[in-house]
Structures are given as structure tokens and as C-alpha cells.
């Protein structure tokens, strides 16, 4: 049980797919202009990654090694299309806001990464827990970034105005930059910095060092 808990908890901060493994950054930039799109994307990705890991883990003994990546991608792509169709039928406005990015979950390294690295080698239960943990880790970053960007960029959260903008007679001057993609880079960068300051073991050793510097360490 402790083991199962670790699988879910460890990707939240320690092995977070976005801040530690730097995966899925593209979509993290694109869909975090507001909290509701970030939540919807988190839900879509977590669903896809859990289902994909479950299915791939279930048939892992029968996936021929030479075509394993094609089989994995086919399964993931089909799930993504189904999720996309479901969203267009039941969450039309949000699917408009997310536009191509739901479809691009296919190319999110996170999903294929967990399938290839974990689900191909492990039974269904741990695979699903691992996928759920990674999905939640990704969601956590998206929700944090989405909240900061919507609050500072529009003065609202989930569309509810919290800081009344100057235009509507309030005091808050919305930061237009927060609605642009670079803001997500800054916030994710600051998050990585904060996490690595708190947990020094996450800092990678320098890959290339000048010979003279080595002695001084």
C-alpha cells in the first residue's frame, strides 16, 4: 500500500513530469491562459494517460518488440480522438478554447513516455497508479500556472472576478504579458527554481566542465 502511495505521490513534486523531467511543456504553455482550460486539459490528459497505460500494460506480453511504439501510439491516438469527440459533444465551449491542443496530447512525450518506460514492463495496477500520479503531477503544474496567469492577467479565477480591473472601476491593472506564452515560461521557470532550491538533490550535475575547474570542484 505504501508502495502504491509512493507511485502516486512521487510524480507530484519529486519526479514531476513538467518541472523535473521537462515533458509536456508545449501544452503547459498553450492551455494555461485561464484556469478552466487548464483544468479541462488536465482532466483530458489524466484520462488518456491512465487508460493508455492500463490497456498497454494489459496486452504488454503480446506486443511484439519491433512494432511496440506503433502499437502504443495507435492506442494513445485512438483514445485522444475519442476524448476529443466527447469534449466536442459535451463541453463544446471548452473544446473550442483548447482547439488543437487536445489532439496534440498524442505527441505529449509524457503519455508515450509512461507507456514505454513503465506500462510495457509492469502489471496493470502499478501501471495505472503510475499513470495517475504522472497525470496528477502534470495537472498540478497546469493548475498552478493557470491560476497565476488568469488571476494576474484577467483578475479572475474560473471566470469569477476577484480583482476588479481598472476598466470596470477597480484598482487592478491586468498584466497583459500573463496572457502571452512567455509568461508560462517564466512561471514554470520560477517553479523549477523554487523546487530545486527546496530540494537540492534535483539539481543535475553539470554535464560539461572545464578541466581546470574540476580540481576546485
Amino acid at each position: 500500500m505504501a508502495n502504491a502511495l509512493t507511485r502516486i505521490v512521487s510524480p507530484l513534486i519529486d519526479q514531476n513530469p513538467v518541472t523535473r523531467q521537462i515533458l509536456g511543456v508545449c501544452s503547459a504553455l498553450a492551455v494555461t491562459t485561464s484556469l478552466d482550460t487548464a483544468l479541462m486539459m488536465s482532466l483530458a490528459l489524466t484520462t488518456v494517460i491512465c487508460l493508455a497505460s492500463a490497456i498497454i500494460s494489459l496486452i504488454r506480453h503480446h506486443i511484439p518488440h519491433v512494432i511496440r511504439l506503433i502499437v502504443q501510439i495507435t492506442i494513445i491516438a485512438s483514445l485522444v480522438i475519442v476524448i476529443d469527440e466527447l469534449m466536442r459533444a459535451f463541453a463544446f465551449e471548452l473544446s473550442r478554447a483548447l482547439s488543437v491542443f487536445v489532439g496534440l496530447i498524442v505527441t505529449n512525450c509524457l503519455v508515450l513516455g509512461r507507456a514505454e518506460a513503465f506500462a510495457m514492463r509492469n502489471p496493470v495496477r502499478p501501471s495505472v497508479l503510475d499513470a495517475l500520479g504522472n497525470g496528477l503531477g502534470y495537472s498540478l503544474i497546469l493548475i498552478v500556472v493557470g491560476s497565476i496567469r488568469e488571476l494576474l492577467g484577467q483578475g479572475s479565477l474560473l471566470g469569477v472576478t476577484l480583482l476588479t480591473p481598472v476598466e470596470d472601476g477597480g484598482w487592478f491593472q491586468p498584466l497583459g504579458l500573463m496572457q502571452l506564452a512567455p509568461a508560462a515560461f517564466f512561471i514554470i521557470g520560477l517553479l523549477i527554481w523554487a523546487i530545486r532550491s527546496a530540494r537540492a538533490d534535483q539539481v543535475e550535475p553539470a554535464q560539461y566542465q572545464l578541466a581546470g575547474d574540476r580540481g576546485r570542484g
Binding site: 506480453h61 503480446h62 511484439p64 518488440h65 519491433v66 512494432i67 506503433i70 502499437v71
Partner: peptide, 12 residues
């Protein structure tokens, strides 16, 4: 066997 061509084509 997973390396068997029939199995590869079949699974695909």
C-alpha cells in the same frame, strides 16, 4: 512467439 511474423502482422 512475439518475434513471429504472423504474430507481428496479427497484433498490428
Amino acid at each position: 512467439n512475439n518475434d513471429d511474423p504472423v504474430k507481428i502482422v496479427g497484433v498490428a
